[in-house]
Structures are given as structure tokens and as C-alpha cells.
């Protein structure tokens, strides 16, 4: 994927707004975006839930 990077921070809010004010087509884009965010969040949660703490014997624990 290609990017044109600005030399200033465009902020996520100002980018999202451009889709929000774009009528029906824009709402569809925002819907997909939110769905991706949700999926991304779920995936992160899933990875976190699969991780386990490595038991360390109390003798080895430093105080």
C-alpha cells in the first residue's frame, strides 16, 4: 500500500471526519472502519487472553 505522508500530523479525528461528511458513501466507509477497529480490538483481546503467566517459584521471585 502506498502513502503520501504529510510533514505535520493530520490527526485521526480530522481524517475520519472526511468520511463522515461524505454522505451515504462516507457512512459506509466509516461503518467498515469501525468494524475493522472492533475486529482488531477483539483480536488483540484474544491474543491477550491466550497468553499465560509463566509460574515462577516463590523462591526465585525477587523482592
Amino acid at each position: 500500500m502506498n502513502f503520501l505522508l504529510a510533514y505535520f500530523d493530520p490527526t485521526a479525528g480530522s481524517l475520519l471526519l472526511q468520511a463522515l461528511v461524505g454522505g451515504f458513501g462516507g457512512i459506509v466507509v466509516v461503518g467498515r472502519y469501525l468494524w475493522m477497529q472492533l475486529r482488531g480490538h477483539e483480536q488483540v483481546q484474544a491474543i491477550l487472553s491466550q497468553s499465560r503467566e509463566i509460574p515462577i517459584s516463590t523462591q526465585l521471585q525477587s523482592r
Binding site: P10, G13, A19, V29, R32
Partner: peptide, 25 residues
């Protein structure tokens, strides 16, 4: 929106690209 998305960890540019943003918007 700026307040809400301050902590967004991913690239919004890339995510919007993947979501079908286009020049008509």
C-alpha cells in the same frame, strides 16, 4: 473525534484506505 481517537494505535490513513475511502469523498 480528535478527543475520541487520541489513543488510536493503528494508522487511520491505512485503515480508511482499507475501508474503501475514495477521492469522491
Amino acid at each position: 473525534l480528535e478527543k475520541k481517537t487520541q489513543a488510536t494505535p493503528t494508522s487511520t490513513v491505512r485503515d480508511l484506505q482499507s475501508s474503501g475511502f475514495n477521492s469522491q469523498l
